[in-house]
Computed example of a mutant assay.
Amino acid sequence: MTEARGSAGRDDEGRDRYTPGAPCWVSLMVHGLAATQEFYGALFGWEFRPGPRHLGPYVRALLDGRDVAGMGRLPPDRHLPVAWTPYMASDHVDQTAEAIRLCGGTVGVGPLDAEDAGRLAICSDPSGAVFGVWQAAAHQGIGAAGQPGTPAWHELLTFESESVAKFYGTVFGYEEEPVVSADIDYLTLHLDGRPVAGLHGVGTSLPRDQGPHWLTYFEVADADEALHHVAGLGGHVLKPARESADGRVATVADPEGARFALIESRR
């Protein structure tokens, strides 16, 4: 599991730029922002600082002084799912948003400016899975990677992978690498020959209270210890730690129900 970042070069200030189409940011909208900060701060060691307030109160999570993720507060009158949302990099978010519409997706928010940080849109694919598009300005995206507490992978859980892969491939230029197996519907999306995300078709095995959705994996040093912390902090263990080709993996939810995965990578 790896993310394609930096291969597009650097910006005028020498910071890494994300390849268009690469997951570059992840954000969570919640009802109780302070309590959510306490949960993730204790779990991952994140610190927080104020971010753009284009959609209401918002903070950026930092690890060792580098940006890792964002969190915002949902308006009290909006009963929206509490879920982690990955953002894909774009050089022209308005053009990307138009391509999303033409390919059968939906643009629910934006495109709009997030102060001087950049420009964004929040969209959904034809199956209904929500994702964001980010055109960087002052804020390039995730600045820390490959260490505990950072996003390590993004995986779409959907009904079947083939049709939705065509959507993402057309919009973002991904190449597909399917897993050849009679038992699993899975393919990996690649940019410049590097894997950036996975699509997992699970048919009717999707959670009853949640349709197709993106799942973010966060790196941890010890999966079993992290699960103990999740439970102790008021979260929920949905799938206990298990071995995978990439390491030891578990699926959990925070106290508000936002699902995410933990991965103890093999290095």
Rank of each mutant, 00 (worst) to 15 (best):
R101D: 09
L157Y: 15
A182G: 06
V133N: 11
S163E: 11
P126H: 08
A136H: 09
A117Y: 13
D183G: 03
H154E: 12
P195Q: 05
W153L: 12
E98P: 02
T170A: 01
I142Q: 15
G193N: 07
F131C: 14
E155G: 10
C123V: 15
G193H: 06
G132C: 11
A152T: 10
G149Y: 02
H190G: 06
L191R: 03
E160C: 01
F172I: 08
Y174C: 00
E176R: 14
L102G: 03
Y168P: 02
D113K: 03
G132L: 14
Q140L: 15
A182K: 05
T158L: 02
E175V: 05
V196A: 13
I100P: 09
A114N: 07
A99F: 01
R119I: 10
S163Q: 08
S181M: 00
L156V: 09
P151F: 13
G105V: 05
F167I: 01
V180W: 02
I184R: 06
V164I: 13
G110S: 05
T106C: 01
W153I: 11
E115Y: 08
A152P: 08
D192Q: 07
G132V: 14
C103V: 02
A197Y: 12
E176D: 06
A144T: 03
T106G: 00
G169I: 00
Y168F: 10
Y168D: 04
V164R: 04
V164D: 00
T188S: 08
G169Q: 07
G105M: 08
R101G: 12
E162P: 01
A99S: 11
E98W: 10
